Simulated assay, not measured.
Amino acid sequence: MNKALAAISFVVFAAPALAQMTPEGLWRNIDDKTGEAKAEIRIKDNGAGALNGVLERRLAKDAKPEDLCKECSDDRKDKPLLGLEIIRGAKKAEGKDVWEGGKILDPENGRNYTLRMTPIEGGKKLEVRGSFGPFGRTQTWTRVQ
């Protein structure tokens, strides 16, 4: 009886901690140039084993609800920034807490970058790297509780 109770306790208390080491959830991205919060992005499984992320809330002072992705050149061209899918197709790397192989869109310039996401600090933060060839930039996003 005590072993069963211990096992149940482990599952109940450990599951939330384990679930945090994933990019799934709501994240606040911080502008790496100004240090200001820019947006909140919700990342979730797309049902096909990959992660997608949607711009759920814009936090920049100059953000307007009617803003469109004017610079986008794909199916997102002229779509509202709110609700825009900016992360597509990231998959977990085998044997690592890293998600890669997807793309991330910078709606300010319309470019898609190769994506790599790594949960850090026990899943409280997410390193998000967008790269184009040898060039890239990494932002650290904070999990919204």
Score class of each variant (00 low, 15 high):
residue 120 I to S: 11
residue 145 Q to M: 09
residue 126 L to D: 02
residue 42 R to V: 09
residue 83 G to F: 02
residue 128 V to G: 08
residue 72 C to V: 09
residue 145 Q to N: 15
residue 143 R to S: 05
residue 5 L to V: 08
residue 84 L to Y: 08
residue 81 L to I: 12
residue 93 A to H: 04
residue 125 K to W: 05
residue 20 Q to K: 15
residue 11 V to P: 05
residue 107 P to R: 08
residue 68 L to Y: 13
residue 65 P to T: 06
residue 25 G to C: 09
residue 128 V to I: 10
residue 73 S to K: 15
residue 118 T to W: 03
residue 102 G to C: 08
residue 138 T to H: 01
residue 53 G to P: 09
residue 44 K to W: 12
residue 81 L to A: 03
residue 127 E to I: 06
residue 90 A to G: 09
residue 48 A to F: 01
residue 62 D to F: 03
residue 118 T to V: 15
residue 97 D to L: 14
residue 60 A to K: 08
residue 25 G to Y: 00
residue 52 N to M: 07
residue 10 F to D: 14
residue 112 N to I: 01
residue 10 F to I: 11
residue 31 D to G: 02
residue 82 L to A: 05
residue 37 A to R: 01
residue 105 L to C: 07
residue 140 T to D: 01
residue 138 T to W: 00
residue 4 A to M: 11
residue 37 A to V: 03
residue 61 K to Y: 00
residue 101 G to S: 13
residue 48 A to W: 01
residue 85 E to P: 08
residue 107 P to G: 10
residue 59 L to G: 00
residue 1 M to I: 07
residue 42 R to A: 06
residue 144 V to R: 11
residue 75 D to K: 14
residue 106 D to H: 01
residue 84 L to P: 00
residue 16 P to A: 09
residue 22 T to N: 13
residue 86 I to E: 04
residue 101 G to N: 12
residue 21 M to Q: 14
residue 35 G to P: 03
residue 51 L to Y: 11
residue 53 G to K: 09
residue 105 L to I: 09
residue 117 M to E: 04
residue 89 G to H: 07
residue 127 E to Y: 00
residue 96 K to T: 06
residue 87 I to W: 02
residue 83 G to V: 06
residue 53 G to M: 05
residue 134 P to I: 14
residue 92 K to R: 15
residue 83 G to N: 08
residue 48 A to M: 06
residue 79 K to G: 01
residue 10 F to A: 15
residue 122 G to W: 10
residue 19 A to E: 08
residue 90 A to T: 03
residue 80 P to Q: 13
residue 129 R to T: 15
residue 13 F to T: 14
residue 62 D to S: 13
residue 30 I to C: 05
residue 107 P to I: 05
residue 3 K to R: 13
residue 104 I to Q: 09
residue 45 D to K: 14
residue 11 V to H: 05
residue 66 E to Y: 04
residue 21 M to T: 13
residue 100 E to P: 00
residue 35 G to E: 08
residue 142 T to A: 12
residue 143 R to M: 11
residue 43 I to E: 00
residue 15 A to R: 13
residue 109 N to S: 08
residue 106 D to V: 03
residue 98 V to I: 15
residue 82 L to Q: 02
residue 123 G to K: 02
residue 11 V to D: 01
residue 17 A to P: 00
residue 48 A to V: 04
residue 83 G to M: 11
residue 2 N to A: 14
residue 135 F to H: 06
residue 41 I to G: 04
residue 1 M to E: 10
residue 2 N to T: 12
residue 120 I to M: 03
residue 49 G to R: 11
residue 46 N to R: 04
residue 64 K to P: 12
residue 31 D to N: 12
residue 13 F to S: 10
residue 19 A to F: 01
residue 36 E to D: 13
residue 25 G to M: 12
residue 26 L to N: 09
residue 128 V to D: 00
residue 89 G to F: 05
residue 44 K to F: 11
residue 46 N to H: 07
residue 20 Q to F: 09
residue 102 G to R: 07
residue 65 P to I: 07
residue 137 R to L: 02
residue 75 D to S: 13
residue 65 P to E: 06
residue 23 P to D: 10
residue 2 N to V: 10
residue 88 R to K: 15
residue 47 G to V: 04
residue 60 A to L: 07
residue 30 I to P: 06
residue 4 A to S: 11
residue 68 L to C: 02
residue 77 K to W: 00
residue 139 Q to T: 09
residue 60 A to W: 04
residue 112 N to L: 14
residue 128 V to Y: 10
residue 85 E to T: 15
residue 62 D to Q: 11
residue 17 A to K: 13
residue 21 M to C: 11
